[in-house]
Design a protein around this nucleic acid. Structure first.
Lengths: 363, 363
DNA sequence: CTGTTAGCGCTTTCAC
DNA sequence: GTGAAAGCGCTAACAG
């Protein structure tokens, strides 16, 4: 029923091996022969059988990109940039319908933040003998899950799959073969709070991300570092959860509700730091709904500098993460077209974007 | 080196065939045998070889979801919902590390709006013998590309791949086997403009999406329909491009620049309709930068009702599309767990969300 | 530069 | 309920 490589070979009056060589373009073939083969491919509308080819070659052209939330532009931007580097080039050499050169198939897999699904996707990709896997965004810090991840990634590496971490800290046990592009969440968090402190704020609420996520912890630590350095007390009770810190998912709703609660607990609050820009938007809405003005009554800051943040009213003070660049670099690392950073680890700087949503406190 | 099914069979003292049957669970196997096999799988940390299995079975468990822009939540929301339906269930039966039941691998492919990449991805998925393909968002209306798409999708269907359109109108030549979930962009566009007309606006600018996209055309047609029905002239010069209509990509920047231009051309503008919410945000920024107030001086409206729209200041009037529901339904159609709509085509309603960014004109 | 020959690891009749 | 055997369609040595 379906056309096979043998059919093409017959029509082009060459051996299957030759057709394979033409298609893979990784072997010298006479121009005349190649043309004949290519013509046969087009005439028969032949499409390579991926599974068969992967089986024989023991590798596939699948590259998996794991994201925690595909509906969040934070991940979409990184994934899109990575995908462009991987599968974005023009199909090589004026390809006809049947061919697609040595194209890799970059695909994004949405874990929804679930550790089980993360592992499941890795198994599925391992099953497909994926050429590479990119893990984006913060990791869960649960020891069991960490161990399972380390083991699974180790097996992938062993099987020849390239593994790249993008916006995620290196594995605890530091598999050397795994390149990591880590965001400086801690430094960014610190600079953001320093900015607030410099403006004169002393009572600062913090709407943090979900517990046990590296991203959450690092941003929070940066915040606490700044507070401590300035000798501002009260934000840390030693448990890592100050009375002015509330945890929740990376959603607008979480920002809204946590802000209401924080404002209730501490009416003297003059500034609010959110886990990210989306949460900050919710926080802004809550502040406003309480009849307070931003930034006159309460300053609000986010993190990530997603595209919509500059359009918030007032424009959101935040910390810019070069998501596009990081994603692209991860894509190149996955393709092997860029050398891994020294030590396998690169820290990517986070830049403070001071805008209109923060100002000196009222009094 | 890597563990194969034969290794498992040897360890469990059964034949490879039996292991295969246990793993696929689609055949009677004695409980004792099954346990022995499962134990061997866990002990050896066996992972099925996807390509080999796909080759032998002539199908794979890959499901492709094509999106125009993965960084746009419009697509992220649909893709995430679809992916949940497809690969989101718990791995069947307390699966150990090696197994992943009959899990499908739902993957999203970012075309970036490029017709070539769209075709390339379809070829790549065809190559992998994908179980299903979901195409989301508006289609390009170029006749050549349409023909190529129709041909390629026809071939996919022929090869047993289920094809679902989500938020995309049915193919011109209407392949019966392709289910289509189409948004009522036209009706939504019409109701939005009717709302503006009812408020008293007569000079309405329109920042449209890219040319030759079904989504762009349908929304614009709805707008024109409403104008025509109300007897408002000037917005249509018969070419389908009124002087108050400007086309551009679905970006904030496009909204910003087009709005500046529109305001320059027609200072008497009292309302502005944008291609979508993202564009509307850019439009708002431009209006504001011109020293005009929203909605007192100029009303602004978007389309899609993305999550951030309600947080815009003022909250954005827009048209809500049930992206989540549509994506989930597309996922179920792709899995075959939901019956296709009668005739293979369902039109999904678009609901007007009148909010604070629109109000009666000044004078 | 091209053809021949073995498999790659799994599924699936067909027997038992 | 289980085993044996025959491919699935391609790639990759080897020859020539």
């Amino acid at each position: 029923m379906t056309v096979t490589l043998a059919d093409v070979a017959a029509r082009a009056r060459v051996s299957p091996a030759t057709v394979s060589r033409v298609l893979n373009g990784n072997y010298p073939v006479a121009a005349a022969t190649r043309d004949r083969v290519l013509r046969a491919v087009d005439e028969l509308d032949y499409v390579l059988n991926g599974p068969a080819s992967s089986l024989a070659a023991a590798t596939s052209d699948l590259v998996g990109i794991l994201v925690n939330d595909i509906a969040d532009p934070f991940f979409g931007i990184m994934a899109g940039a990575a995908q462009s580097e991987i599968g974005g080039q023009d199909p090589g050499g004026g390809a006809g319908p049947g061919r697609a050169g040595s194209q890799k198939l970059a695909v994004v897999c949405n874990t929804g933040g679930s550790p089980e699904r993360e592992l499941t996707y890795l198994t599925l990709l391992q099953r497909q003998r994926a050429a590479a896997v990119i893990l984006t965004g913060g990791a869960l810090e649960d020891p069991d899950h960490s161990a399972a991840m380390t083991a699974k990634l180790g097996r992938l590496v062993e099987a020849g799959t390239r593994v790249v971490l993008c916006g995620r800290p290196p594995l605890p046990e530091g598999e050397a073969a795994i390149a990591a592009l880590a965001f400086d969440n801690r430094g960014g968090g610190r600079r953001l709070t320093e900015h607030l402190l410099a403006l004169g704020h002393r009572t600062i609420g913090y709407v943090a991300g979900p517990l046990e996520r590296t991203t959450t912890r690092h941003r929070l630590e940066g915040h606490r570092d700044a507070l401590r350095a300035a000798g501002v007390p009260g934000a840390d009770d030693g448990s890592g959860r100050g009375p002015l810190t509330l945890h929740g998912p990376y959603t607008r709703r979480s920002g809204y509700e946590a802000t209401l609660e924080l404002l209730r607990r501490e009416p003297g609050l003059t500034a609010l730091v959110a886990a990210n820009d989306t949460v900050a938007l919710g926080a802004c809405a809550a502040v406003r709904d309480q009849g307070l003005r931003i930034p006159q009554d309460v300053s609000v800051a986010g993190f990530d500098d997603l595209p919509f943040s500059v359009d918030a009213v007032p424009a959101l003070t935040t910390v810019r993460l070069p998501l596009q660049e990081a994603g692209a670099r991860a894509g190149r690392l996955a393709m092997g077209t860029e050398a891994p950073p020294p030590g396998g680890i690169a820290t990517i700087a986070a830049e403070l974007m001071a805008r209109a949503s923060t100002a000196p406190p009222r009094s």
